[in-house]
């Protein structure tokens, strides 16, 4: 009975647009749902460093190398803001990382696609960071305070990621025939996976309804996806690029770009672990962690030595 009253108060608070803070009472399912969502989000930022980190050594100029390094550093920071937010709900950093490393936890499927050419670095910034940004701007409105504040920080930094990507694509489109083809090829490969980043249609998404009711998510998958498509199509056309969707057409009435059927079988297949890069990403992430062990050990030993000296 007590819980029912608390649940009502909790819902009323959310409906009034107030934020829930770490020590506030919350239903267990709200806590669990948020830890799952924030940690998946954090893992995505961390794994997202890999496809781009892969290009830092091969960036075509010093300017591009500095930009790529700064972007990858930002993604590390984004992961840390989000782990920090998840920890406010009682999750431990160790558990969260362990779940990522043993393959139990999920991260965004988009990072299980390979970055084959330099144009992919453009497409990732333009499309992947672009889609992430649409999602993250909406998540500023989440009902959980620490998550919302992490989103404010992240969104401030994402604008540069998106722009540098579009700049790479624009440069290639201004270049030789071959370079323009590279840009088109990258768009062909990244378009549909980027659209899938918003997740299945709300009608088929098991967590969507409850997540919306509790304000964990502020907007549904379908409307965010539509927002991204309508925003991005003109950006492609402005560079003379073709969106790889024969059913794409502009609806004069709704002012929206309507799009064709999404291949959800591919999406679920990649989530299941059968994407091109699933195994490699997990292996690389584990290697990065294991190779850093001596640094963690050294820092712990140094801290202990200083402590015993003082005492």
């Amino acid at each position: 009975m007590e819980d029912l009253k608390r649940l009502e108060e909790f819902q009323a608070k959310i409906d009034a647009g107030e934020k829930i803070e770490p020590k506030d009472w919350m239903p267990d399912a709200y806590r669990k749902n948020l830890i799952r969502m924030m940690s998946q989000h954090a893992h995505s930022e961390i794994v997202g460093m890999l496809p781009e980190g892969n290009w830092i050594q091969r960036a075509p100029s010093l300017r591009r190398k500095l930009i790529a390094t700064a972007k990858v550093q930002d993604e590390a920071g984004h992961g840390l803001y989000l782990y920090s937010a998840a920890e406010t709900l009682g999750a431990s950093r160790e558990e969260l990382l362990e779940a990522l490393h043993n393959g139990k936890a999920k991260y965004s499927s988009i990072f299980n696609y390979p970055t084959l050419t330099w144009a992919d670095m453009g497409a990732v910034g333009w499309l992947v960071d672009g889609a992430a940004m649409v999602n993250q701007v909406s998540l500023i409105g989440t009902s959980y305070g620490p998550y919302s504040r992490a989103m404010v920080r992240i969104c401030r930094e994402e604008a540069f990621h998106n722009r540098q990507g579009y700049e790479i694509i624009a440069e290639l489109c201004n270049g030789t025939e071959e370079q323009k083809e590279m840009a088109q090829d990258a768009l062909n490969r990244w378009w549909w996976p980027s659209i899938m980043m918003f997740g299945p249609s709300d009608a088929d998404s098991p967590h969507s309804e409850q997540a919306l009711k509790w304000g964990i998510k502020a907007e549904g998958n379908d409307s965010l996806r539509q927002k991204f498509i309508t925003m991005t199509v003109p950006q492609a056309h402005a560079r003379g690029l073709t969106i790889p969707d024969p059913d794409l057409k502009y609806n004069e009435e709704t002012k929206q770009w309507e799009f064709g059927e999404v291949d959800w079988d591919e999406f679920f297949n990649v989530i299941k672990g059968n994407g091109i890069m699933n195994r490699k990403r997990l292996k690389d992430r584990n290697a990065a962690h294991d190779n850093g062990k001596w640094v963690r050990d050294a820092a712990a030993a140094y801290a202990l030595k200083k402590k015993t000296k003082v005492a």
Binding site: D74, G77, L80, Y81, A150, R153, E157, A299, Y302, K306
Partner: peptide, 24 residues
């Protein structure tokens, strides 16, 4: 308050906080 970091000692906590929260 801006968030949290993990660190072995105070000195490293300061450095981590700088890297995580003040890149700009």
């Amino acid at each position: 308050h801006v968030g949290s970091v993990h660190a072995a000692d105070a000195e490293q906590a300061l450095q981590n906080a700088r890297d995580v929260y003040t890149r700009r």
